[in-house]
Simulated scan of single mutants.
Amino acid sequence: MDQLAYVLPPAVISALIQIGLALLAFLLSRWILKRLDLRIDFNFKEWISNADDNAVSNYLGYRILAVCILVGLIVSGSL
Results as ranks from 00 to 15, higher is better:
Ser76Gln: 11
Leu65Phe: 07
Ser78Thr: 09
Ser57Met: 11
Pro9Gln: 00
Asn58Pro: 00
Ala11Gly: 01
Ser76Cys: 11
Pro10Glu: 03
Lys45Ser: 15
Val56Gln: 12
Ile17Asp: 09
Met1Cys: 05
Lys45Val: 01
Ser78Lys: 14
Ala25Met: 11
Ile48Ser: 13
Val67Pro: 02
Leu23Ile: 00
Val75Asn: 00
Leu36Phe: 10
Ser49Ile: 14
Ser14Cys: 10
Val12Gly: 01
Asn43Cys: 09
Asn58Ser: 07
Asn58Lys: 08
Asp41His: 13
Tyr62Asp: 04
Val71Ala: 14
Glu46Cys: 02
Gly72Ile: 03
Gln18Glu: 03
Ser29Met: 12
Leu16Ile: 05
Tyr62Ala: 09
Leu65Met: 06
Ala66Cys: 04
Phe26Thr: 09
Leu8Asp: 00
Ala5Thr: 05
Ile17Phe: 04
Leu60Glu: 10
Arg35Gln: 14
Leu8Ala: 08
Asp53Tyr: 04
Val56Ile: 15
Gly61Ser: 13
Leu65Arg: 02
Leu8Met: 07
Ala51Val: 13
Tyr6Gly: 00
Ala25Ile: 04
Ser14Ala: 13
Ala55Leu: 08
Gln18Phe: 06
Leu38Ser: 13
Leu4Lys: 06
Leu70Asn: 00
Val7Phe: 14
Ile40Tyr: 14
Lys45Ala: 15
Ile48Gln: 11
Leu65Asp: 07
Leu33Gly: 08
Ala22Val: 04
Trp31Met: 14
Ile69Val: 15
Cys68Arg: 02
Leu4Met: 07
Asp52Gly: 15
Phe42Trp: 06
Phe44Glu: 14
Gly20Cys: 03
Leu73Tyr: 06
Leu23Glu: 11
Leu79Ser: 09
Ile40His: 07
Ala51Met: 09
Lys34Cys: 02
Arg30Val: 15
Tyr62Asn: 10
Leu36Tyr: 09
Asn50Cys: 07
Cys68Tyr: 00
Arg30His: 09
Ala22Trp: 01
Cys68Gly: 05
Ile74Ala: 12
Arg39Ile: 10
Asp52Gln: 14
Asn54Thr: 10
Ser78Asn: 10
Leu27Lys: 11
Leu38Cys: 10
Val75Arg: 00
Phe44Ile: 07
Ala5Glu: 08
Gly20Asn: 07
Leu73Val: 03
Ile74Gly: 14
Phe42Met: 09
Tyr6Glu: 05
Ser49Gly: 05
Leu70Gln: 03
Ser14Ile: 03
